[in-house]
Design a protein around this nucleic acid. Structure first.
Length: 578
RNA sequence: CGGGGUGUAGCGCAGUCUGGUAGCGCAUCUGGUUUGGGACCAGAGGGUCGGGGGUUCGAAUCCCUCCACCCCGACCA
């Protein structure tokens, strides 16, 4: 490709609405342009990268035995009504009507379509297992699209769906997808981590997320290398901290705490540490109208864990100020567990406290020296809080007291680029997808589903690979492998001849070459090549040609080297293939 | 959806408080001098100042209203 024939829409300045580096660089390098919130044009440079990712994904899916197909992006409401998700999915589902006023949606995912299709295509267990995938545009009407294509409303996704006769077969395919995903991200040159994930409302047996590690990532991941443990913070089990409960040593005392509402307020007012206080949170219950959730003052409630408790209404919903006033008789800043007449569920660490501080259920008053059992009934104990850095890994075999730093969790951030999931029979039952087994009996097929955020990978890769000059593409994702930067292309026949010849030879050899034949100053050409992140650069100029040499530089390396014009193409092919 | 903010040339911004003929830098186009890390000189084009309504002799500026976009919180590839 010659730049004179290629839309190279680079920007010198950073558009003001881009916050994170990948978004800024994608705009500056002319990869994408915004059309509306969360909706983007992919310009030629951007599309080249996107296709690279797609192809790696495609190759690895094919290698793992999945079959590519294509489903429609617009789907009829009836399918979603069958699965029950027309009502359940909520605002993210973009609903549209056709000219006959029939309901459709723009597909955010394709379980309904594939399950409906396979319920008629698969008749016999002999056709199983089978795994189908597509690479296609999805639309999810995100509440808050942001960070460019990192969290867009329209995005490119690879989604795969597998069908099985047995759970064992599902597990086999799941494992092979796990391996395929690991190969995809490795080949793309990304630093990533597979993470145990929440199976959520769908249920099912197993789920892993694949995260590209980046500080700007929106997900927090708890990691312990000693036990090869990584889990989404939403899921990671939080052990009790602070040792077993000590016997009560103080008398309960009611103290006026005027205007002290938050934990920090109360703790500093009473001169105690926040880990000697508890906070009592009131939510709606499944059987009782209200339920109290108790975590230590310095801990955070994990809502996903909380709603798994049978007494807690799912999805979690908070009690209103009025409900709390009516039932408990005080405002949110003064709630406590003494004399509280609703079910109390306490986090493990909160349940281990003694002589602690809590609200007195009277506005402006707290109790100190509170003890479970003596001053209130024993709570039901449950894992309610999110883990924090320094917590002991749930896999650790040592007891809490003698654990070392190696047993502790650290928290890193990641961008979720893949998610694999054992669905079980949720959709196959709803859509009546069964086949005949060996005995000629109908068997509902367990399913798995496997997603990769193709367009998100592009952004995530930039988050991991950039410097102050621009993008540094991993070889497998680069829009071009090599750029030829001639100095004086329009002045010097020698330069032009060699540049053209090299361009022809390398292109012939299957290398994707960009020849910068613009009549621009060198600085501009260098800056653009660096910004776009092309891995290899050859500079051809009169100066070095006098010695029959050209200059070569890798994008990831600051020191250029001279190489001989003799056998130039072969030398470069060697450098490119690494 | 709640809270905060911004809309002025392709991009980055000033001008708005205190109403009086719409500006700067970069980019673009023309001519010239340049050419190994974002050059210089001379000239040119480009704007319903987010939309609508109002106040006023006069509105980018004041008032009302709608819209779009960005940032912070609950969801996901």
């Amino acid at each position: 490709m010659r730049t004179s024939n290629f839309l190279l829409s680079t920007l010198k300045e950073t558009p003001s609405d881009a916050e994170i580096i990948s978004h800024q660089l994608m705009l500056r390098s002319g990869m994408i342009r915004k059309v509306a919130a969360g909706i983007y044009n992919w310009l030629p440079v951007g599309l080249r990268v996107l296709r690279k990712v797609e192809n790696v994904v495609r190759e690895e899916m094919n290698r793992a035995g999945a079959q590519e197909m294509l489903m429609p992006s617009v789907q009829p409401a009836e399918l979603w009504q069958q699965s029950g998700r027309w009502e359940m999915y909520g605002g993210e589902l973009l609903r549209i009507k056709d000219r006959h006023q029939r309901d459709f949606c723009y597909g955010p995912t394709h379980e309904e379509v594939i399950t409906s299709l396979m319920s008629s295509e698969i008749r016999s267990y002999k056709q199983l297992p089978a795994n189908f995938y597509q690479i296609q545009t999805k639309f999810r009407d995100e509440r808050r699209p942001r960070f460019g294509v990192m969290r867009a409303r329209e995005f490119v996704m690879k989604d795969a769906y597998s069908f099985h006769l047995t759970q064992d077969s599902l597990q086999d395919t799941y494992d092979s997808m796990y391996d395929a995903y690991s190969r995809v991200f490795s080949r793309l040159g990304l630093g990533f981590r597979a993470v145990e994930a929440d199976t959520g409302s769908i249920g099912g047996n197993a789920s892993h997320e694949f995260h590209v590690l980046a500080d700007s990532g929106e997900d927090a991941i708890a990691v312990c290398n000693k036990y090869d443990y990584a889990a989404n913070v939403e899921l990671a089990e939080a052990l009790a901290v602070g040792g077993n409960r000590k016997p009560a040593s103080k008398a309960i005392e009611k103290i006026a705490t005027p205007e002290q509402k938050s934990i920090d307020d109360v703790a500093s007012f009473l001169s105690v540490e926040t880990d000697q206080t508890i906070k009592t949170l009131i939510v709606h219950g499944e059987e009782n109208p209200l339920v109290a959730l108790v975590v230590r003052g310095d801990h955070e409630l994990n809502e996903i864990k909380a709603e798994k408790h049978p007494l807690v209404k799912s999805p979690l919903s908070w009690a209103s100020e009025q409900e709390i006033e009516q039932t408990i008789g005080c405002q949110t800043g003064s709630i406590g567990i003494v004399g509280l007449d609703i079910p109390v569920i306490a986090d493990r660490s909160a349940a281990n406290l003694s002589d602690f501080v809590c609200g007195a259920n009277v506005d402006g008053f707290h109790f100190s020296g509170v003890n479970w059992e003596r001053d209130c009934k024993e709570p039901e104990i449950f894992d309610l809080r999110s883990v924090v850095a320094g917590d002991i890994c749930a896999r650790a075999e040592t007891s809490t007291q003698e654990s070392s730093e190696e047993d502790q969790l650290s928290i890193t951030r990641g961008v979720e680029v893949g998610h694999i999931f054992q669905l079980g029979t949720k959709y196959s039952e709803a859509m009546n997808a069964s086949c005949l087994d060996k005995n000629g009996k109908a068997a509902v097929m367990p399913m798995g589903c496997y997603g990769i955020g193709v367009s998100r990978i592009v952004a995530a890769a930039i988050e991991q690979n950039h410097d102050d000059r621009g993008i540094i593409w991993p070889a497998a994702m680069a829009p071009f492998q090599l750029v030829i930067t001639p100095i004086g292309y329009h002045k010097s026949d020698k330069v032009k001849t060699l540049a053209d010849e090299l361009y022809a030879n390398l292109t012939q050899a299957g290398v994707e070459v960009l020849l910068d034949d613009r009549n621009e100053r060198p600085g501009i050409m260098f800056a653009d090549a660096d910004l776009i992140g092309i891995p290899h650069r050859v500079v051809i100029g009169e100066k070095s040609l006098k010695n029959d040499q050209v200059e070569y530089k890798a994008r990831c390396n600051d020191s250029p080297e001279d190489i001989s014009v003799d056998g130039l193409s072969d030398s470069l092919l060697g450098l490119i293939s690494g």
